[in-house]
Amino acid sequence: MRIRHTVLAATGGAALMAVAALPAAADPAVPPPAPPNPVFRTEATRQEAATEAPVTASQLLDKVTRCTQISRGKYRSDQGAAAKIPVCDAKGAVFWKADMDIDCDGQPTVRCNRQTDPYFQPTTAFQQSDGAQLNAEKLPFIVVPGPSSIWDYRVSGIRGGSVAAVIYKNKVQYAVVGDTGPTGIIGEASYATAKALGIDPHPSTGGAASGVTYIVFKQSRVSPIESRNAALTLGKSLARSFVKNN
């Protein structure tokens, strides 16, 4: 992570027709079998779908309208900005509402390197299962502030690989905690996270000035950290629990 400044048809044959024209043999004493109950089947299907339906952005946002501040102070969105962003506590998660700067640190790629990002660093705070740095271009991850007197993410049950739901303009992207940043600034995520949310992911000129909500689930962890499918599966499950319990 780096510190950024605010600038931001069908045809039928004759034979079939003849068969269709024949009178059907029927025994008036034997009534036809009753059709299955469509109401029962429809209701059962609806309930099953509701159980597995992914949580929506609006459902998550409805649960973070009030803030029980857990941080001892507040964070800046960028260097030079006013410190007015608190970290809030909830059942099973912490959350904050901020901007989104683009983190391209980690493995050098076509879109994340020293030429595209003047603040590029070839390392991330947490690494893949094979020891390699994270790939910001491919892996959705967020950046948490380094531990400080304002807030220590570790005390809240957050660690590398913890699952987060990032929400922007009615879209939800599940990500992992993949990097740490300056102790006084908050609001940053990887190139892949921004791209998935429809935010310009360019490390120098992209990002979102506001309107991004970060919900990080306590005591959660994706293993291996680089598995997008694992983050998605666990994220959906934790999001359902979060909506149910808050």
Rank of each mutant, 00 (worst) to 15 (best):
A90V: 06
A90M: 08
K91L: 07
K91N: 09
A93L: 08
W96Y: 13
W96K: 04
W96S: 10
K97S: 14
K97E: 11
A98S: 14
D99W: 03
D99C: 03
D101G: 03
I102T: 01
I102K: 00
D103W: 00
C104G: 03
C104E: 02
D105H: 06
D105S: 14
Q107I: 12
P108V: 09
T109Q: 05
V110K: 10
V110R: 14
R111H: 11
R111V: 03
C112F: 04
N113I: 05
R114I: 04
R114A: 10
D117S: 08
Y119K: 08
Y119L: 11
Q121E: 13
Q121N: 14
Q121L: 15
P122E: 04
P122A: 06
P122Y: 00
T123R: 12
T123N: 12
T123C: 02
T123H: 13
T124H: 10
T124G: 13
A125P: 00
F126T: 11
Q127R: 15
Q127D: 15
Q128D: 11
S129I: 07
D130C: 03
G131E: 09
Q133L: 12
Q133Y: 13
L134D: 07
N135A: 11
L139S: 07
L139K: 06
P140A: 11
P140F: 10
P140H: 10
